[in-house]
Every structure is written in structure tokens, then in C-alpha cells.
């Protein structure tokens, strides 16, 4: 090959590689804080526990998002770094209803078929300084009513009328985060391994780990959570 041809081809290839880097690499270099951001979202149900293993197994086909009945599953863009094109669920926006469709269609072992009650996306935690019944601002129970798992996951304890408590059965689907009428979203989904819980017992405040989902994890005091970019704020819910 002549030197001239070779140089031309080299230039063309370099231009293409640089061009390819523009949507992916350069954006990451220019926004380093995006890389440093903590794990803010949940993986879909049945996802491999180790997130690195999940990223390795996921081929980014997007099938899980297509079949999700409530379109809870979204996909990381370039801001996700090496998580690009892998699915996540942001419970503050839309919680998982545990339909199991994503686990059925996933072609790889990234999402493995798991019975509803054995899903381990995380565990819900209720901020008792904000939750309406816990601060005696009324009777609510939205979270307990909507929970797809049921009484083993979230219930009211006797003598704590309508004050919800999370039990061991919680799988962290995040529907309660979505429906909670409090503007500060006092329920957050924490990583399961970090939580010290006892079966059918109230989780002590001291055992609360740092929030996994900061947008949902703002503690109480009526401060509305910041909506995501592009998200229209929810219509105001009148506390009762």
C-alpha cells in the first residue's frame, strides 16, 4: 500500500473514531460528575445481584423496556458511563409492578426468572418524620394498598393505626415510592444488604442506611423532590 493511501485511510479512520467518541466518550470526559454519581436507580426484578455481572450479561437489546406493562423500565444514556443502554427503574417516576414480563423475555441471564416473592431489588424504608400517619397528619395507607406483594411486605402494626411498616417480605419494587402522596417522597428503596431488619418487626431508625435513591430520599419537612430532567411534576395530591 502506498504511503499516501495509507495516510488517507488512517485519517479517515481516526476521524471516524473521533466522531464515534463524540456521543459516548467525550461526553463522559466533559461531565465527570456523571461518572461519579452513585447508583441512583434500581435494576429490574430478577437482575443479577452484582451490578458488574449484570452489565456484563446485558446485551442492551431493550426488550425488557418494550414489554414492561407500565413502562417503568428506562435505559441509561451516555450519562450512565459503562451502564449505557442497560435498564433501570426509577421508582420516584414509575415503580415496578412485578409482572415478570421482563424476566420472561430477557434473552440472556441478566434478568433471570424469579418468583415474585424472591425478587430482591432492594427494600423500602419509610421516613417517619414525613409520612402523614406517622406525624399524625391523617390516615393514608396508599403504600400498603398498592403493594404488589401484600401484607408480608408492608402493613400496619397494631396500635399504630394506619402507620405503615416495612417487613421482611418487601422486594423493593418501588410502587409505594411512586404512589406516596407526600411531595417529598418519604419512602425510599435501600440496598437490601445494608438493611438490618427483623421479620415482622419495625425497622429501627438507627438501622437506616444512606439512601440508594436520593431523588426519593429527601427527608421529610415538606420539601418537594426535584423532578428529573424532562419530567413533568405530578399534579398536587391533597393530603388528607
Amino acid at each position: 500500500m502506498e504511503r499516501r493511501t495509507f495516510l488517507q485511510q488512517l485519517t479517515a479512520t481516526a476521524a471516524l473514531v473521533a466522531g464515534a467518541a463524540t456521543p459516548y466518550g467525550l461526553a463522559r470526559v466533559m461531565t465527570p460528575e456523571a461518572l461519579a454519581a452513585p447508583h441512583t436507580h434500581l435494576r429490574p426484578p430478577g437482575a443479577l445481584r452484582d451490578d458488574n455481572a449484570f452489565i456484563e450479561a446485558c446485551i442492551g437489546c431493550g426488550l425488557c423496556g418494550e414489554v414492561c406493562p407500565v413502562q417503568a423500565i428506562r435505559f441509561y444514556g451516555r450519562e450512565g458511563g459503562n451502564k449505557v443502554n442497560t435498564p433501570y427503574i426509577n421508582p420516584a417516576k414509575k415503580g415496578c409492578i412485578l409482572s415478570g414480563r421482563c424476566m420472561e423475555v430477557c434473552p440472556t441471564n441478566a434478568l433471570t426468572a424469579t418468583p415474585k416473592r424472591e425478587v430482591a431489588m432492594g427494600i423500602a424504608q419509610i421516613d417517619r418524620s414525613a409520612c402523614y400517619p406517622w406525624v399524625d397528619r391523617g390516615v393514608c395507607g396508599a403504600c400498603a394498598n398498592v403493594c404488589p406483594v401484600g401484607k408480608e411486605a408492608i402493613t400496619f402494626v397494631f396500635a399504630n393505626f394506619y402507620r405503615p411498616v416495612v417487613l421482611k417480605g418487601c422486594v423493593g419494587c418501588g410502587v409505594c415510592v411512586e404512589v406516596c402522596p407526600h411531595p417529598s417522597r418519604p419512602i425510599r428503596i435501600a440496598e437490601r444488604s445494608l438493611v438490618q431488619y427483623a421479620p415482622a418487626a419495625i425497622i429501627p431508625e438507627s438501622a437506616l442506611p444512606p439512601a440508594v435513591n436520593p431523588s426519593a430520599g429527601v427527608t421529610g419537612h415538606g420539601v418537594p423532590a426535584q423532578p428529573e430532567a424532562g419530567e413533568t411534576p405530578r399534579p398536587g395530591v391533597v393530603p388528607f
Partner: peptide
């Protein structure tokens, strides 16, 4: 069905 087109389009 999801959150709009992304880097792939570029």
C-alpha cells in the same frame, strides 16, 4: 416507549 432517543442516534 422509553425516555427518547440518545447517543445512538448521534
Amino acid at each position: 416507549t422509553a425516555n427518547g432517543v440518545g447517543a445512538g442516534t448521534t
